[in-house]
Amino acid sequence: MANILIAEDEMSISNLIKMNLALVGHTCAQAFDGNSALNMANSFHFDLIILDVMLPGISGFDLIPHLNNVPVIFVTAKCGLEDRIRGLRLGADDYITKPFETLELVTRVDVVLRRTKAVSHSFEFDDIKIDFDCKKVFKQGTEVNLRPKEFDLLCALVKNRNLALSREKLLEIVWDYDYEGDTRTVDVHIQKLRKKLDIEERLKTVYKTGYRLEV
């Protein structure tokens, strides 16, 4: 998918971001200080840079004007409104404060990539091809008839693939409401997806957590 540079001085957090982004199919490079971040950004092509504000050497705020308009998401422990506004005003595409949730990170990265058109229009695994633009799913070349909610559910699972999504989260993403009670709707739709696409092995139930599409 996308090629992402992670500029973060804290090894543990840098690796955390890298591992999570790798799950959903992004390739990541890491820089641990401002100077190497600048060098890498100028030497290679990146679709997105995840930038810590407090980088040794050159701070994230100072770095941003030299990044040739590559989309930037700030990740920082500074949660003050002032810093947020400053970051966004400098041209950052988004702003994530520590500590963050994996899903939040993945979603924000996805949103920024989609806005900058660096996201692919289709996704394939096994004998299944999903066309996001036409909202169609093909299995062995023939179209599978999915209902709109089933398609949305499949998209959510694909975008957060290899990550377990709780029923509540799926309800929130696909059905667009915070609703505690009706998680069975999710179960029913998951069953339908498994049956229609024959992905019992891929679409797993994770114990006490939810569902995960493993690709």
């Binding site: 804290e10 543990s12 591992m19 422990a77 500074k78 520590k98 377990a164 999504l165 957590t209 995960r212």
Partner: peptide, 28 residues
């Protein structure tokens, strides 16, 4: 202090979530 606490907290939270949700190998 908040900043100093946030960094380890972010790691702990993030890796905990990773263990909980990610399809990962033994090594990971």
């Amino acid at each position: 202090m908040a900043h100093e606490l946030r960094t380890p907290l972010t790691s702990i939270y993030g890796y905990g979530e990773y263990l909980e949700k990610a399809a990962s190998t033994e090594e990971e």
